[in-house]
Simulated assay, not measured.
Amino acid sequence: MKNLPYKKEHDIFRQSLRRFLEKEALPFYDEWEQQNYIPRNFWRKLGEQGYLCPWVDEQYGGFNADFLYSVIVNEEMEKVGTGLIGVGLHNDIVTPYLDSFGSEEQKKRWLPSCISGEAISAIAMTEPGAGSDLANIRTTARKDGDEYIINGEKTFITNGHSADLVVVVCKTNLEANPAHKGISLFVIENGTPGFTKGKKIKKVGQHANDTCELIFEDVRVPASHLLGEEGKGFYYLMDKLQQERLVVAIGAIVAAEQMVDITVDYTKQRRAFGQPISAFQNTQFKLAEMATEINIGRTYVDSLIAKHMDGVEIITEVSMAKWWLTDLAKKVATECMQLHGGYGYMEEYEIARRFRDVAVTSIYAGSNEIMKTIIAKRMEL
């Protein structure tokens, strides 16, 4: 963090957000885990305080903040719990599609409500039969006069059950060769006839993060809901994946830092054989190893944040960061649970939640196997 250009206003923003979360999120987080979603009133409070999409232009309700504000929001949310990742998805993954590729009319229609917290957003890429292989999605959008008719099914959609606006990845040209040139993006509003939400999916972790299937049956949307140009959807997705994977990497390094911090505190308090377990050489070595790797990871991800802010293309580096840091976070979770002993397996201890929450980070936003494929391809192997 010391290498990033934080200013006094960034520090004030962080402290303000931290106080807000201590009051409005931490006391209720276990309840949100039980109910499997974050209540809408919390989203509205985030909007009222300026914590949603602060980077958006002032004319739509934002305040033209730099990316460091997004970093701060993602870091402070992760410190509360990974189940708050839906806020980061709304802020820095979905809304940028509207801002970058939307028409002026679309921006005026949707961005203000995304900033105020009145509208929660989601992006629907994954299907029951298509994950990383986006070119083979089966959801279609067929032109019919000045409308499109959308049919298909999406799954594992973060914010899906709460979403008011969904950016949906569709095939508009089934004959396109290569297939990815037939992909387009549409914005579908909650309540549109034919658009239904499946039940919330029961996941191993991230219980506060609502996830569900979305079903589209002869959903008619006006042509004005096409985002950008027809057939350019795949290129829009590729354009935004750099930031998406950087956001995941930021969350992973913060999760690892949090897990080591709570484990250091625990090992100082837990006694065995007449002394704190922090006095045992094995405990010290394990924590020293993790602290070292985390420090290396933090230095790397901060360097990528700086490059991203400068507009540098870091596809290879961010792919490296995404796979290495999420794998590191999973390793840290396992080691920290072990150092907690039997208590680490109890839900009342935070490390248990962290252990189950971090598992999926190596899968979403492109699996780590896909990250290695990208790296290898860009090495011209």
Rank of each mutant, 00 (worst) to 15 (best):
N3M: 14
K8H: 08
E9D: 08
K23F: 01
E24V: 01
D30F: 04
W32I: 02
W32V: 06
E48L: 12
Q49M: 07
Y51D: 05
W55I: 06
Q59A: 05
G62L: 05
F63V: 10
N64L: 01
Y69G: 05
S70T: 08
N74A: 13
L89G: 01
N91R: 07
D92N: 13
L98H: 04
S100I: 07
E105S: 15
Q106Y: 06
K108W: 02
P128D: 13
L134C: 04
R142N: 13
Y148K: 08
Y148S: 06
V166F: 03
V168P: 05
P178R: 15
H180W: 15
G182C: 10
T192V: 13
F195Y: 09
G198H: 06
V204Y: 09
T211K: 14
T211Q: 14
C212N: 12
L214Y: 05
E217F: 00
P222E: 11
P222W: 09
L227V: 01
V247N: 12
V247F: 00
A249M: 10
V260C: 03
I262L: 13
V264E: 09
A279P: 00
K286N: 11
L287C: 01
I305R: 09
A306M: 10
M309K: 05
E313H: 14
I315A: 14
L328C: 04
A329C: 11
K331E: 06
M337Q: 09
L339T: 07
H340Q: 07
Y343A: 09
E348Y: 04
Y349Q: 11
Y349S: 01
I351R: 04
G366N: 07
E369G: 15
M371D: 14
